[in-house]
Nucleic acid binder design. Structure first.
Lengths: 299, 299
DNA sequence: TCTCGCGATAAGGTTTTCTTATTTAGAAAC
DNA sequence: GTTTCTAAATAAGAAAACCTTATCGCGAGA
């Protein structure tokens, strides 16, 4: 029962009023003059009042009635409001703006994401990114609680996360880390049995070998260091060697080197974790797409 | 190139979101369910993003995407803005609200308008009325300067106001005013010659007689009082008699009476003055219509 | 497994909103 | 005073948008 205005119609009205003519307004609207006439008439009928002075009379210029003068600023405000929302939502949909929350395991966080994010935000200056790094469990938890839009973590076969989906992206191969002047450093690749002669330090990622034929090594290990910084320091001090996924090793270390294990070849799959039945926000979806595209083209 | 939303479409979206279902929304919109589906899909296409979680999947309840959650409050605000304007303008068009500015000559102002306005504003509690009373010249001037929406004044034959139009409403007959105990008070009507025997006080309205056969009376008059209050006081004191238009005489005077002049019968036409090429605001037009209707039915 | 509820999809009709063509009226020019 | 010109109104038909009925697909609960 209240009349419902169309934005286009209001635009026509504003243009006729401001350009003082139907022809000029028609041109601006990319319509013909009769279309504007009808549009205005429809508006007048809806309102039950004339917006422009009777234009068949002697008066030459199209001029607003007092009623029309009242309506003009209101119409303009509504149009502006509409356009603001339209623009905001379009920007958001084009992931040019908004807020993106992301959690990742430290290895990817430190070795892959910095460069990747730098490239991604290059053309989206208004995008805010919140970034958390923590271990896989914590990442899963943050995804579950919707503290982040998506996470980057390992795939756990054991724990069934039926409500989450996993998109594998990176394959992180397990290898041996030792000082560059260590006897093992000369090898291009290693068989697990070759490690038995050396002092092996196990760490949090060692359990990745549990299911492999290298599992006897774990019993062989006398030391366990969970903290990555300490572990690296021990290695650099020449205390021994360890096994680590490649991404967990500082990329451009001066003192340490990484030798892949050829037998067994153990890979840790790292990928994107998100809630299955929840869409991503446009910026988040854009980043996921970006990561996928980059990794497909890279391989 | 920016998408343009339709208010109806936004309503559909809000209803689907809030009622958590297309059927419920369809009912509220007095549409069928497919209409709502298409409406939402169109909106999603315009935005380039899904608003609701994929509804063909396992999920039962229709739920918003994060993007949709962002859009919902904005859509609601825009709808509210639209409805506010729609309502305001409708009220204004129905002259239920707004501002009406009016000027009138004192006679009508004091004897006709009070009762008339009281009746008029009866069903328009939100209408503000600014009211000025002044002589005819001033009323014309205020109309001309658009200080008032319209005026109530005399018709001047002499001065051509080509830009103003005059709608005659009242006919104000000239008569004689005298104390109730005056010899003339017994008459039902008077011939101008009968006044010659009495002391005549002329006043601002006396020039209405100038063009009539009673013009000799004006030379006969020894006193001229421009101020109405003083004039009435003089009459009440029994100083003499005067001629006045009927509406200029206090209606229910205890002491004075009004006897029409039969020869000559001079009427002063009072009516509505407005700018020719300017429409009235809806409340002003409504009042004019009201006055016209009242006066036609009264006669 | 069946059925129900909810939403998507398809096809066709109605309404709305344009366009082209023409008319009208005032203003300016002759 | 007639002609001419310009701007808007009007008419009629085409195009687009929108809604309806009918039907399908799919997951959930009986």
């Amino acid at each position: 029962m209240l009349p419902e205005f169309k934005i286009a119609q209001l635009r026509h009205f504003v243009w006729v009023a401001e350009l003082k003519g139907f022809h000029a307004a028609a041109e601006k609207a990319h319509r013909t003059q009769p279309a504007i006439s009808l549009s205005i008439r429809d508006l007048e009928n809806k309102l039950g009042e004339a917006l422009f002075e009777k234009r068949n009379a002697k008066t030459a210029k199209t001029e607003l009635t007092p009623f029309g003068q009242h309506f003009l600023p209101k119409a303009k405000e509504l149009i502006e409001h509409h356009d603001r929302i339209s623009k905001d939502m379009t920007l958001l949909a084009e992931h040019k703006t908004g807020h993106l929350r992301l959690a990742s395991v430290p290895s990817i966080a430190s070795q892959v994401l910095p460069e990747l994010l730098l490239e991604f935000v290059n053309d989206t200056p208004e995008l805010h990114i919140s970034f958390f790094d923590d271990n896989s469990d914590a990442v899963y938890r943050m995804v579950e609680n919707q503290q982040v839009d998506f996470g980057i973590a390992h795939l756990f076969h054991e724990q069934e996360h039926s409500d989450k989906s996993f998109i594998p992206i990176w394959e992180d191969q397990i290898g041996v880390v030792c000082p560059k002047d260590h006897p093992l450093a000369a090898h291009k690749e290693l068989h697990w049995k070759e490690l038995r002669k050396h002092r092996l330090i196990s760490n949090g990622t060692s359990r990745l070998l549990e299911d492999s034929e290298a599992s006897p090594l774990l019993g062989h290990s006398q030391f366990y260091i969970s903290n990555m910084i300490s572990l690296i320091a021990m290695l650099e001090a020449g205390f021994g060697v360890t096994t680590l996924p490649r991404y967990a090793v500082p990329k451009d270390s001066e003192t340490l080197c990484f030798i892949p294990l050829s037998t067994p070849t153990v890979v840790r799959r790292i990928g994107i974790v998100k809630l299955t039945n929840k869409s991503l926000t446009p910026p988040a979806q854009a980043l996921v797409d970006f990561i996928l595209a980059r990794n497909n083209s890279a391989e």
